[in-house]
Design a protein around this nucleic acid. Sequence first.
DNA 1: CATTTGTTTCACAAAATGTTCACAAAAGTT
DNA 2: AACTTTTGTGAACATTTTGTGAAACAAATG
Lengths: 225, 225
Amino acid sequence: MMATILIVDDEKEMRELLRLYLEQEGFTCVEADDGEAGLAMLANAHIDLIILDIMMPKLDGYRFCMRVREQSQVPIIFLTARSDEWDRVYGLKIGADDYIVKPFSPNEVVARVYAVLRRTKSSAETLTKHEAGPIAVDEKARKVTVNGKPVVLTLKEFELLMLFLKHRGQVFTREQLLDRVWGIHYVGSTRTVDTHIKTLRIKLGEAGQLIQTVWGVGYKFDETI
Amino acid sequence: MMATILIVDDEKEMRELLRLYLEQEGFTCVEADDGEAGLAMLANAHIDLIILDIMMPKLDGYRFCMRVREQSQVPIIFLTARSDEWDRVYGLKIGADDYIVKPFSPNEVVARVYAVLRRTKSSAETLTKHEAGPIAVDEKARKVTVNGKPVVLTLKEFELLMLFLKHRGQVFTREQLLDRVWGIHYVGSTRTVDTHIKTLRIKLGEAGQLIQTVWGVGYKFDETI
DNA sequence: CATTTGTTTCACAAAATGTTCACAAAAGTT
DNA sequence: AACTTTTGTGAACATTTTGTGAAACAAATG
């Protein structure tokens, strides 16, 4: 994947910890110890993703984030010590793509970085056309057809379908689907999944039967009945 | 989830406390009272996760962790009395996946264990195809065939079969089967097992004979009659 | 800020599965 | 052989899980 990540944090230890984790995965890291320095680096180097501590002297995380957004759509992951709702909502509203609560594990950081990069990636690597029986999906264009007829899906429906198509035959529990489509911070009823499965099935018509219920477990997409 | 957890701690009470919490959730636990013993167990048994006290005589937690990492990627959760920064950063740097500060609540331990297992599961995901004589199982897809013909199993039937396949030849009492398939919170008659064995045998046809009755004890799955 | 679209929750119906029970059959004991 | 214990089995019954329409709620759009 080989992306360059800008780490903005006033604590040296934290920056080095993140660098350690990320360089192990093959990412390139650059560090800035405050918002001003971060903005400068952003202007001068190609940055693919920013990891940003909320609590910083001088230019704090929120304001830094807003400044970045004035000029760029680089994905931003927030780093926060407080896991409460306000932080989260405010953080995401302001243009962050994800957040990580301290303390965090190496796996967590790396997983989030991959996830955010994958979500925001322009086009290059991802396979863009998928087919399964009568269903054809152009991922890039987010267009779905069934027997050549276009079908309009909402965000969640589309992402559910994509996940199923990419892991045909595998059974997913509702929790797994929520994790992977809604994100690991989702709170709420797991029955939400059912409703989306229902609408997806209806929109897919006959082909909706390819999404099979696995009683007591969850759902899977299977062409072989 | 059915994972085996290695608890490494020099205090007996602590080990027993953790075991209590974890076994209630259906995890299998093994204990070691120092690092040396821990390494030995790791070499000889399949371990899915390690819970490790940092403060130990002889081989301390950090060094144990490093030794483990030389040979394995098993997830490790640190147990620490000190919540200060140094412990944390150093612990994570050295390859731990999470840490728990003493004193801890049952919920906390269990939650961390689940979280870590979930994060690390996907990659290490257990073998997904199993075979025994004419029976073939794709665990991920939850599909079973006998002599190539698909057989539809219910949840309990499937999980019973999986347990048998993973421990061929081992005799299970009804209580053990209830513990491991239904969970330790099951209340009700043990004869329920009999009924499920019956339906499983019927659905497997000829191959159903591989599930053998051990009179006065329970059942086992055995290919050698 | 009204309107539209999408998402989540809820309550109830429908479906599938799980459990119990009673009695038959088999295995072990005296 | 008679008796006791354990297991097999079919059917009734209970429970759990899933499907679904409508309503509440939230977000995006004009």
